[in-house]
């Protein structure tokens, strides 16, 4: 447990001092500040558009963060041989990995809270240009941002799993990007191939798609942006299912990552 905290704090220090991270956050802030300006493109739906821009900006920032931090943090330690000095300490490898993961998760969480707050202000300003029929549903907006950050925390666990497997940064970065793209599509694809419109497809293809559907993460569950933009009521059951799914899926990924890292040699 001790090792976990030590690694977590050291990794957080590293993230906080990372210039690339500062630049990325600066860019996200710029997008959010500009969101009211963008939203003037829409004549009828100023608040809706600014909410969309804000949510997209947060989502994009978290994506880059999850892939970058998740993919690079362990990989860089191995590549620069920091592992020799860190793993020579009495820190179990699992604590090391979980500490790294927790640091990434803390950064993703705090970034989404910070950017979420800024975007609330931004949406408020945009709405004041052209008062909407219905004011922003705060609960839904916060739920959408929270779900979004859970999604990227799950993605960062994938990146960590890949970097505990691979010696190059290719797999962690591009692998997790691929998981991101595939995970966003699985629900629609499985609905298509199991629907009556796909009767012409071969059975083996349908089985493969279903297998992948249950194997790959289902990011559609974390997408509450429509509910946030239009204030459509959220289903409590759905939220609970999504949260439970997040916990179990992430734990499984971390278990697997710990297993792989324990087996890894650092020559």
């Amino acid at each position: 447990m001790n090792g976990f905290w030590v690694v977590l704090i050291a990794a957080l220090r590293g993230f906080l001092r990372d210039r690339v991270l500062h630049a990325l956050l600066g860019f996200a802030l710029l997008l959010l500040v500009l969101a009211p300006v963008f939203s003037l493109f829409s004549m009828r739906q100023v608040q809706e558009l600014s909410t969309t821009v804000a949510l997209s900006a947060i989502s994009l920032t978290l994506l880059v963060l999850a892939v970058m931090l998740g993919g690079f943090s362990v990989w860089r330690d191995v590549e620069r041989r920091y592992t020799a000095s860190v793993l020579g300490l009495p820190i179990p490898r699992s604590s090391y990995l979980l500490g790294k993961f927790a640091a990434v998760a803390v950064v993703l969480m705090s970034t989404s809270i910070f950017l979420g707050f800024v975007s609330l202000v931004s949406v408020h300003i945009a709405a004041s240009f052209y008062p909407p029929d219905r004011s922003l549903d705060l609960m839904n907006f916060m739920a959408a941002i929270a779900a979004c950050s859970l999604k990227y925390i799950l993605l960062s666990a994938f990146a960590l799993l890949f970097s505990s497997l691979s010696t190059s940064f290719f797999l962690p970065v591009f692998g997790s990007l691929a998981v991101y793209l595939a995970g966003g599509a699985t629900q629609e694809v499985v609905e298509y191939v199991t629907g009556p419109s796909a009767q012409s497809l071969s059975n083996s293809l349908i089985t493969t798609v279903k297998g992948l559907y249950y194997l790959l993460p289902n990011f559609a569950a974390f997408d509450l942006s429509f509910q946030a933009i239009y204030g459509i009521p959220l289903s409590v059951e759905g939220l609970l299912l999504t949260f439970g799914y997040f916990l179990v899926y992430t734990s499984l990924l971390l278990l697997l990552a710990c297993y792989c890292l324990a087996r890894r040699e650092f020559p």
Partner: peptide, 16 residues
Amino acid sequence: LGDHLRERPLNVKLGY
């Protein structure tokens, strides 16, 4: 979860 998502309102599926 899969069932729940399948039952999403159509407008949620289309998005904005």
